Every structure is written in C-alpha cells, then in structure tokens.
Amino acid sequence: MSENTADLHPLDDATRLAPGPDGLLAGRTTPAYWNMASPFGGVTAGLLMRAVLDNPERIGTPVSQTVNYCAPIAQGDFTVAVRVVRSGRSVQHFYAEIAQNGTITTNATIICAVRSQTWRHQPATMPDAAPAESLPAMPAGAPVPFIGRYEFRFLEGEPRFGPPLAEPRSPHSLFWIADRPARTLDFVSLAAFCDIFFPRVFQVRGHPVPAGTVSMTSYFHASQAEIDAQGDRPLLARADALRFGDQFCDQFGELWSDAGTLLASTSQIGWFRQ
C-alpha cells in the first residue's frame, strides 16, 4: 500500500486494495472520507464493491448489495476477505468482510448477474428538478471531511445544523450530487452514493445527533451501458423516511441519471440517541 497515489481520485485512493497475507486483501483508511468516528459508510460500501468487482471469479455486474456496519473502522490498516457463496449460470452471490485487529467491522453480501435483454418498464418517475448548474453548491467546508468530497446542490430539504427544532420537519430531501473532484460514474461510486443522504433524524430535528447506519441494502437497476452513459455529470438524489423511535429509524433513497433513468434505490436502518 506504499505506491504513489498522487494521480488517483480520492475515492479510488480510499477504496484501493492490494494483495495481502493468506489470500486476503489489504486496505488502509484515508482522511479524505473520514466521518465522525469512522470512514463514511458509503466509501466502505464502495470498497467492498471494489473487492468483488476485482475478484477474478466474478461474472456479470452488481444487482444488489447489503452492508452491515458491525463496529467502527479505526484509522489505519485493515484486511478484506471475499468469497463466492454460490455461482449459477447468470447469478452469483458473494460474501465480503472487513477485519481490523481481529474484529470484523463490516460484512456484506453482494449479488452480481449476467443481464440479458428483456421487456422493460419503469413506473417510477424522476422528480421535477431544475438543472444542477442552475443551483448553488453547498459550501465545501463541513464538520466532517467526507462531505467536502461531494458537491451537493439542494432543491428541497437542505440540511440544517442549528439548535434542535421545536417541531419535527419533513424527512424529505431532493438534491443533485456529484463527486468532488469530478469522477466518471461506476459501480464503486454508485455504491458510495447510496449512503450519501444525511441521516434523516438530522433532517427532521434540524440538528445533528449521535447516529449511525446499522444495515444498508442497495439495488442497482442500471446496466453497464447506462452507468457509462452518465459520465461525470451529477445524479439526482431523493431521500425520505417512515418512522423514528426507540433508538432506531429507517430511511430510503433513489438515485437518478440526468436523463431520467433510475440507476439505484436504497434503504437502511440506523440507530440514534437523543
């Protein structure tokens, strides 16, 4: 992990893996995507996605990913283990885990498939949204470093970091999102974007509280051609939630191409304390 990384995009540096001992992969955290006490959950999802994408046994492209965040990843080195659980002619199941100092911090199941042309129908409709370039970007300076690695342009539900509101507000947000600096979309960055939504408990309270993702499942609806067609242009992101209480809350989101194609949808359960 000592090679020159000056020419790597920060996301590619943060998800870089090298051969390790006993068939494992070796990785290391980077400050660019640091969150409050651990790396941003999206970059962890992207790293596990990369571990599968780089696996020589892989067939097809990602269809779904479930990531369970078991313990914080501390700054420093970690290892990644990947194995094929079951492989058919067109659908393949992977298991992957991150370990650090003898503790499994994160585990994931990732399903890949060889897609074939079939009948298509998209009943979901892209939200109405002004073009990304017509909206101001949220300032890069932020309480945690990873926020500066993304360009947020809000249409609805801009985050608020003031004192708690007397009454809850809507958990809904709508915004354009892009890597900063710009980066061509792939399944690694799409996996990371699936966790780009600020915790909805922050949104309804208008104030950050101790919170974290417990488990996140993402579905990748896009074909490789649809991913490639997006280039480095912003995605439209929509988030909402259903219920908060007894220390846990849900949230769900959608990620749209600027051409109106639903690329991914995601849902998660998280904890909070207040």
Rank of each mutant, 00 (worst) to 15 (best):
T105P: 05
S173P: 02
H9Y: 11
E3Y: 05
Q251H: 14
N55Y: 06
F198Y: 13
L47Y: 02
R180N: 07
M126C: 13
S116L: 10
P39F: 04
F94P: 05
L11T: 02
A32W: 01
D186M: 05
P181V: 08
W271A: 03
I147P: 04
V84G: 00
V52S: 02
D179G: 02
P56T: 10
C194F: 12
T103P: 07
S116G: 12
Q65C: 11
G102E: 07
P168F: 01
A241D: 04
T29I: 09
V82T: 09
L174G: 09
H93K: 03
Y95E: 14
R86Q: 04
P21E: 15
P234E: 00
I111V: 15
G23A: 13
R180A: 13
F146R: 01
Q203D: 06
P234Q: 00
L236R: 01
G20D: 04
N101M: 11
I98T: 03
V67H: 06
P181T: 04
G245M: 05
F193G: 05
T79P: 00
H121P: 08
G41P: 07
L135K: 06
T66W: 11
L236P: 03
Q117W: 06
D250G: 11
V201S: 06
H121I: 14
P164I: 14
G76I: 14
T184V: 12
S189D: 07
A142M: 11
F197M: 09
L235W: 00
V82W: 00
F94G: 04
I177Q: 04
F197L: 11
D195S: 05
A241P: 07
A239K: 03
R89K: 10
R160H: 14
A51Y: 09
A178R: 05
A140N: 02
